[in-house]
Simulated assay, not measured.
Amino acid sequence: MSTFPAVVNYASKEGAVEIREIPKPEIGDEDVLLEVANIGVCGSDLHQWTADHSWPVNYPVVLGHEFGGHVAEVGNRVENWKEGDRVVSETAAIIDPDNPMSRQGLYNLDPTRKGFGYGVDGAMTKYVRVPARCLHQVPENLDFRQACLTEPCCVAYNAVIGNSNIKPGDRVIVLGPGTIGILCAAMAKLSGAEVAIVGLESDKDRLKIAEQYGCTPIIGDATEWARERDGLGSDCIVDAAGVSATLEIALDLVRPNGHIAKVGWGPKPPGFSLDPLVQKNVTLQGSFSHNWPIWERVIALLASGKLDVKPIIGGVWPIENWREAFKKMHDGEVVKSVLKPE
Rank of each mutant, 00 (worst) to 15 (best):
residue 315 G to S: 02
residue 111 P to Y: 02
residue 81 W to G: 09
residue 290 H to P: 10
residue 127 Y to N: 05
residue 66 E to M: 05
residue 148 C to S: 05
residue 139 P to I: 01
residue 222 A to M: 08
residue 316 V to I: 07
residue 133 R to K: 08
residue 279 Q to T: 14
residue 293 P to D: 10
residue 264 G to L: 00
residue 167 K to I: 09
residue 336 K to I: 04
residue 113 R to Q: 14
residue 312 I to N: 07
residue 214 G to T: 12
residue 203 D to K: 06
residue 93 A to Y: 05
residue 154 C to T: 07
residue 319 I to F: 01
residue 120 V to Q: 03
residue 45 D to P: 07
residue 94 I to G: 14
residue 44 S to L: 03
residue 319 I to P: 03
residue 97 P to C: 08
residue 22 I to K: 12
residue 25 P to R: 06
residue 89 S to C: 04
residue 189 K to N: 13
residue 7 V to A: 05
residue 171 R to D: 13
residue 260 I to W: 03
residue 229 R to T: 11
residue 284 L to S: 04
residue 280 K to E: 12
residue 182 I to K: 06
residue 204 K to P: 13
residue 200 L to H: 15
residue 230 D to K: 01
residue 206 R to D: 08
residue 292 W to V: 11
residue 228 E to L: 03
residue 281 N to P: 15
residue 244 S to I: 01
residue 267 P to K: 13
residue 219 I to K: 09
residue 111 P to A: 06
residue 20 R to D: 11
residue 1 M to P: 09
residue 259 H to I: 04
residue 54 S to M: 14
residue 68 G to E: 03
residue 74 V to D: 09
residue 326 F to S: 12
residue 226 A to I: 00
residue 261 A to Q: 13
residue 282 V to D: 04
residue 155 V to S: 13
residue 234 S to N: 11
residue 143 D to R: 04
residue 237 I to A: 07
residue 64 G to E: 01
residue 167 K to G: 10
residue 58 N to R: 06
residue 79 E to S: 15
residue 292 W to M: 10
residue 221 D to V: 00
residue 169 G to Y: 09
residue 150 T to N: 08
residue 105 G to E: 08
residue 85 D to I: 00
residue 209 I to F: 01
residue 211 E to Q: 13
residue 24 K to V: 08
residue 128 V to M: 01
residue 330 H to M: 12
residue 339 L to I: 00
residue 337 S to T: 00
residue 306 K to Y: 12
residue 216 T to Y: 14
residue 335 V to K: 00
residue 229 R to E: 15
residue 203 D to S: 08
residue 281 N to L: 08
residue 256 P to K: 10
residue 73 E to S: 03
residue 60 P to Q: 05
residue 285 Q to F: 04
residue 96 D to L: 08
residue 56 P to K: 09
residue 79 E to T: 12
residue 9 N to V: 08
residue 232 L to P: 11
residue 99 N to T: 10
residue 255 R to F: 03
residue 56 P to W: 03
residue 309 V to Q: 09
residue 322 W to K: 02
